[in-house]
């Protein structure tokens, strides 16, 4: 995969998360995944599997404990990708 930065990951996440959101809601990096997007636990776990496949990385579920916002998730993905280089 070509070099990717945090902004690219944020953009991709925002696009993907739009399918979970009320069309009126603008998804920003600070959007809370649980309280604003109302993603339930199973949807979140399935989204993680999709993201693992998209970026060809492993995202441990225990790393999600600190993830609240879209930016948190993007940062986590970026960190895992950087560590795996």
């Amino acid at each position: 995969m070509a070099e990717i930065n945090q902004e690219d990951i944020l953009h991709l996440l925002s696009q993907r998360l739009a399918s979970f959101a009320n069309p009126e809601l603008e998804i920003t990096p600070e959007t809370n995944l649980i309280t604003q997007l109302a993603i339930d636990s199973i949807k979140l776990l399935n989204l993680i599997m999709e993201l693992e496949d998209h970026f060809d990385i492993s995202i441990p579920l225990n790393a999600l404990t600190d993830v609240l916002t879209v930016r948190d998730l993007a940062n986590l993905i970026y960190r895992i990708m950087s560590d795996s280089k």
Partner: peptide, 19 residues
């Protein structure tokens, strides 16, 4: 570290093992 594979999907399990 907890990683899930898709239910009963062996291609998915192998992909995750490979990673």
């Amino acid at each position: 570290d907890i990683i899930r594979f898709r239910h009963n999907d062996m291609a998915d399990l192998e992909k995750r093992l490979r990673r």
